[in-house]
């Protein structure tokens, strides 16, 4: 685990996408507790996609159920974009149907956290994603 801590770049730029500002704030605070302070926010996929295309982000944390463009649509758009397709994506959502989780996995999600979640779970999933990405 210590090696992993070194591998995790605390300066990486993270985009948090959720339509509820309180949830964005919670995730932002938890990420800051984990040492990630370089974050930006968007309230749905349609706002997030141009930010991702122009903003040199390293990691995307997104909700599923949002007005406008949903998280699953955003994930597909990211995977279809030549420059973004390798970006790690973590879904943090209340969507809990097995079919939906399978759908997200097939669309190429890197991690899936169901709400309500704990700080510990968020930390584990982020570490696992970057362990796999770097390994």
């Amino acid at each position: 685990m210590r090696l992993l801590e070194v591998a995790l770049d605390k300066n990486m730029k993270i985009l948090i996408v959720d339509d509820f500002s309180t949830m964005r704030r919670i995730i932002k605070n938890l990420l800051r507790d984990l040492g990630f302070t370089n974050t930006a926010e968007a309230d749905d996929g349609a706002t997030a996609l141009p930010m991702l295309q122009n903003g040199h982000f390293d990691f995307l944390v997104t909700d599923w159920n949002m007005p406008g463009m949903t998280g699953i649509e955003l994930l597909r758009a990211v995977r279809a974009d030549e420059r973004l397709k390798n970006m790690p994506v973590l879904m943090v959502t209340a969507e809990a149907k097995r079919d939906q989780i399978i759908e997200a996995a097939q669309a190429g999600v890197n991690g899936y956290v169901v709400k309500p979640f704990t700080a510990q779970v968020l930390k584990e999933k982020i570490e696992k994603i970057f362990q796999r990405v770097s390994g």
């Binding site: 599923w64 159920n65 949002m66 949903t70 998280g71 699953i72 959502t93 209340a94 969507e95 809990a96 149907k97 097995r98 079919d99 939906q100 989780i101 399978i102 759908e103 996995a105 899936y112 956290v113 169901v114 709400k115 979640f117 779970v121």
Partner: peptide
């Protein structure tokens, strides 16, 4: 409606088509 998202599921622990928590999600994945 599945693609748009349905929000939190009720009585998740009694349903087959819904995961009942993060452990379930991890097992499925």
């Amino acid at each position: 409606s599945l693609a748009r998202g349905e929000g939190p599921q009720m009585r998740a622990d009694k349903r087959e088509d819904v995961v009942s928590g993060q452990d379930d999600v991890d097992d499925l994945l």
